[in-house]
């Protein structure tokens, strides 16, 4: 099963995945022209901040199976694509914007906006379609192509999981044994930057200081 695999430790919060997603789902597919479109194209991926400063997680539809959103949709607007059964799709014309799918979504990634695919409707449910049009032309999802930090990868999930697992076992062993930081999976500058973020977060969280 092919999916967009997220490495949250690699996300630097640049939000370029959001920008690329919105352009990929615009009418013109052109950055400069898409900003003048009505309705404005919307991103289906959301790089939201983590608890600590300088951390973020690019959150998007995980295309669950069974998909709770599909189960609750009263108009059967949500279905699996015939040629890509791993992708959960929303049919814009069938959507009645009732909000049920958003309520049951485990990841809270379904939003409601006007869309070019549903003319006349003030809002419909919008979520990731795994860039099915790009995939049909042999491409990969726009968010993955835009991610220059390696936080988003597209491929067979078991292969990606294995690669991540191997790296993690090494990194975790470092954390547990407190041996030299050179063995860490992250570059030293990123580790230092994260540490700084953690320090600032803890400093601000300490209600006693400066009181």
């Amino acid at each position: 099963m092919k999916t967009v695999f997220v490495h949250p430790e690699r996300c630097i919060g640049c939000k370029q995945c959001e920008m690329a997603c919105a352009v990929a789902h615009s009418q013109t597919k052109n950055l400069f022209l898409s900003v003048f479109e009505t309705p404005a194209p919307k991103s289906r991926i959301h790089a939201e901040p983590g608890l600590l400063l300088n951390t973020a997680f690019p959150n998007k539809c995980r295309h669950c199976d069974p998909a709770p959103c599909m189960a609750v949709c009263p108009t059967a607007a949500i279905r699996r694509a015939a040629d890509h059964p791993e992708i959960v799709m929303i049919e814009p014309r069938k959507c009645i914007a009732c909000g049920m799918c958003a309520m049951v979504c485990p990841f809270d990634v379904i939003t409601y906006y006007a869309a070019a695919g549903a003319p006349g409707k003030p809002a419909i449910a919008i979520k990731c379609d795994h860039c099915i049009e790009r995939q049909r032309q042999g491409g990969s999802p726009a968010c993955v192509e835009a991610c220059k930090a390696g936080a988003l990868q597209f491929g067979e999930i078991n292969e990606l999981v294995k690669a991540a697992r191997t790296r993690y076992s090494e990194a975790v062993s470092v954390a547990v044994t407190q041996v030299s930081s050179e063995l860490s999976a992250l570059p030293a500058n990123v580790v230092a930057w994260r540490q700084l973020g953690a320090e600032i977060t803890h400093l601000n969280a300490d209600g006693k200081k400066g009181a």
């Binding site: 640049c14 939000k15 920008m19 192509e145």
Partner: peptide, 10 residues
Amino acid sequence: QQPQCGYCSL
């Protein structure tokens, strides 16, 4: 470098 940063391009 493709795609280049949309925020910076705009």
